[in-house]
């Protein structure tokens, strides 16, 4: 019985093996790949997706989803740029405004999901257009650039530790991942989040504050997306309304690869982090082999569908193994 439990946690081991495999393939394809600084550079590239993926993991665990994160990132970036450039705020105040805007955007999603009981898919599909449209409308699709160097360091700078150049955002992302990973697995709210994702009706009866938890997940995703927007603007030196286009795909794919179940109640930040790294290695490997964006989109899109399919087939199989025929029947009922 407990063997099954062990198998479930082995999912991360499987993922880890995949990651090592991907690294090996990438190293064979391009010898420079395994250089420490190249690997750390990957950390810079995945920082934004990584921050958002932490929030997305929580949202998907509640059996929700947030398709609007890419658009939210653009909106936050534009608001940051406009606050600094047009409203004359200091760059740090403007950054804070950007982060708060992200929280508000997430809160609006959360309100529609909890108060009106609308399906998260359709809510965030609509706000994806809404937030992108606001970003376009506010900026008239004009980029804002010319940020002070002290700000750009946040996205482009290094901590020089001996021979190793650590991208500035690396420790921040690592900290967010570790704290939220621990929080999700060890705190009361984290534990409740899983219960809620498994069975919302039962969670309500058991006294779990369902609506507050969902709200927290969406607001948290919004805040982290706002933070990602700040780092993004500092990294690319410009705030533009087309920022983060298709970001949601990478983020959701990383979560699903990492074992977060679209059906809710399953997954972990650790898995998501591994999924994120796997995706980043694959993308970086393709970059080094000069595989174009087009082909990368095909690969990532296919990986998403296959990962979800593998996950649901895997869940059905273990369910059937646990309960015998009865479980298989229940699993196929819907």
């Amino acid at each position: 019985m407990s063997g099954l439990r062990a198998l479930a946690s082995n999912r991360e081991a499987v993922l880890f093996a995949l990651l090592i495999g991907a690294l090996a393939v990438a190293a064979l394809a391009s010898p420079s790949f395994l250089q420490v600084n190249n690997l750390l550079e990957i950390g810079r590239l995945i920082a934004e997706a990584g921050l958002i993926a932490v929030g997305m993991t929580a949202v998907i665990i509640t059996a929700g989803i947030d398709l609007s994160v890419g658009a939210t990132l653009a909106l936050c970036a534009v608001i940051l740029g406009k606050s600094w450039h047009d409203a004359g705020m200091s760059i740090w105040t403007a950054s804070a405004v950007g982060v708060v805007a992200g929280g508000l955007a997430g809160g609006f999603n959360g309100l529609l999901v909890t108060r009106l009981g609308l399906p998260p898919l359709i809510v965030t599909l609509a706000t994806m257009a809404l937030y992108r449209g606001l970003a376009l409308g506010l900026s008239h699709a004009e980029p804002v650039h010319g940020y002070p160097d002290s700000f750009l360091l946040l996205g482009q700078g290094y901590w020089q530790l001996g021979p190793v150049a650590l991208p500035v955002q690396f420790p921040l992302v690592a900290l967010v991942i570790i704290v939220s990973g621990l929080y999700l697995s060890r705190s009361v709210w984290g534990r409740w989040l899983y219960a809620l994702g498994r069975n919302e009706a039962a969670a309500r009866i058991a006294g779990v504050p369902v609506d507050a938890l969902k709200m927290a997940a969406y607001v948290g995703t919004g805040l982290l997306t706002g933070l990602a927007a700040v780092i993004y603007v500092a990294r690319v030196s410009t705030a533009k309304a087309d920022a983060g286009t298709m970001m949601e795909l990478d983020v959701i794919t990383a979560c699903v690869l990492g074992g977060v179940s679209i059906a809710g109640g399953e997954g972990s930040i650790w898995g998501t982090a591994l999924g994120l790294m796997l995706l980043a290695v694959v993308r970086r490997g393709m970059d080094l082999r000069q595989v174009g964006n087009a082909e990368q989109a095909i690969v990532v899109g296919t990986v998403l569908v296959l990962a979800v399919a593998a996950h649901s087939a895997w869940s059905r199989a273990t369910q059937a193994a646990r309960l015998g025929k009865a479980g298989a029947r229940a699993g196929s009922a819907e």
Binding site: L125, I262, N293, A294, E295, A297, I298, V300, T302, V308
Partner: peptide, 23 residues
């Protein structure tokens, strides 16, 4: 065939089709 929600599938194929187009 894979019994997946249509939104997830088409989120994936949205990228696949765009990639095929660009390719």
């Amino acid at each position: 065939g894979l019994r997946l929600p249509s939104i997830i599938v088409t989120l994936g194929t949205l990228n696949v089709f765009r990639g095929v187009l660009l390719h």
